[in-house]
Simulated scan of single mutants.
Amino acid sequence: MQRMPNAIQLTELNHDDLLALYAYPAGPAAPWIRVNFVTSIDGAVTIDGRSGGLGTPADKKVFQILRDLADVVVVGAGTARSENYGAAHTDSQLRMRLHHHGFGGDPTGAAPRIAVVTASADLDPTSRLFTDTGARPIILTTAAAPADRKQAITGAGGQVIEAGETSVTAEGLRNALEELEMRRVLCEGGPALFGDLIVAQAVDELCLTLSPMLVAGTERRIAVSPNAMPTPMTCRHLLFDDDGTILTRWVAHHTL
C-alpha cells in the first residue's frame, strides 16, 4: 500500500526536522492561532479530568516543540485550574536559535508567557500560575469581572487585560495579543475556548494527537459550543510513531 505523501514515520525525523514541520509562517502580520490537543481514538480529551493520562512520548515531544516555537500560550481558566498550570519553561538557547532562523522562539531566549482566558477573573492568586518561577502571566478578562479579583491578580504578579465587556471575545483576544506583539499563538484548550474560536473563525491551525487508547466514560470532545461553524481544513502532515501515536497538523482554508 502506498503511503500518503505527507505521512511520515516519526523515527525518520530528527529534532530539527520537527521544528521545521511545525514552524509558524514567517513573520506573521497578525496573531496566528494554533490550537493543540491530544485525544484518545474514541474522542476523549481527558482521563479523570486531566489530559496527562493521554500523553505519549511522541505527544510530549511535540508539545514541548510547540511551546518552544510560540510567543504566548493561551489557555482557558478551567484547563489552567484542572491541569495546575504554571509558567512555561523552554530552552533559552534553542529559543534564540529558532528566532535567528525565523521559525519562532525569542531573540532573548525568554520563554513564552502564559495567557489565561477568564471572563470572571476567577483565579486563585496563590496558585502555581502565579507562584511558579517564570514569565509574568497574562490574564485576559472582562470589564465586568469583579474589581477585587482583578486587583488580587495584579497583586500576585499577573498582568490583567480587559478583552471584552462581559465575555472575552476572539477579536478582543487577538487585539490584546497584537498589542503585546505576540503573533505566534499556541492555544492549549480547553474545549469551550476552542469552540468559541472556531465559531469566530479565528482558528488558523490545529495540531491534534491521537493517543492509541480507548477511554469511554463521559469525557467531552476537543471543541464544544452552543453554535456550529463548519470550518474546512487541509492536512499538512501525519506523523506515525511506533507505539501507534498519530500526530496530525491541519490548517484552515482561509490561511491558504
Rank of each mutant, 00 (worst) to 15 (best):
P57G: 07
G172K: 10
E162H: 06
V185Y: 04
L180K: 13
V72W: 02
L18V: 10
D241R: 04
E12K: 11
I138W: 14
A228C: 14
T118E: 05
P146T: 02
V72G: 00
A145F: 04
A88L: 11
H15C: 07
T90G: 03
Q151K: 15
S40A: 12
D132C: 09
I33R: 01
G157C: 11
V251T: 15
L69M: 06
T166Y: 05
R95L: 03
N36K: 07
A7R: 13
E181P: 00
L210Q: 11
G155I: 00
A163K: 08
I41F: 11
G78E: 06
R183F: 10
V203F: 02
A135I: 00
F194V: 15
G109I: 05
D48F: 05
T79N: 03
G27H: 15
G55M: 12
D196F: 04
C207V: 15
P212F: 09
G164R: 01
G49V: 08
T248Q: 12
F37I: 09
R174F: 02
I41V: 13
V35G: 00
R128T: 14
T126W: 02
T141S: 13
A152W: 03
T11I: 12
Y85L: 03
A192E: 13
L21Y: 10
I222T: 10
R249W: 04
R184I: 02
S82M: 12
N14P: 02
I114M: 15
L66Y: 06
L208K: 03
T234I: 12
L129K: 01
I33Q: 05
P191T: 09
N14S: 10
A252R: 11
T234V: 13
L206K: 02
K60M: 14
H100P: 00
R97W: 08
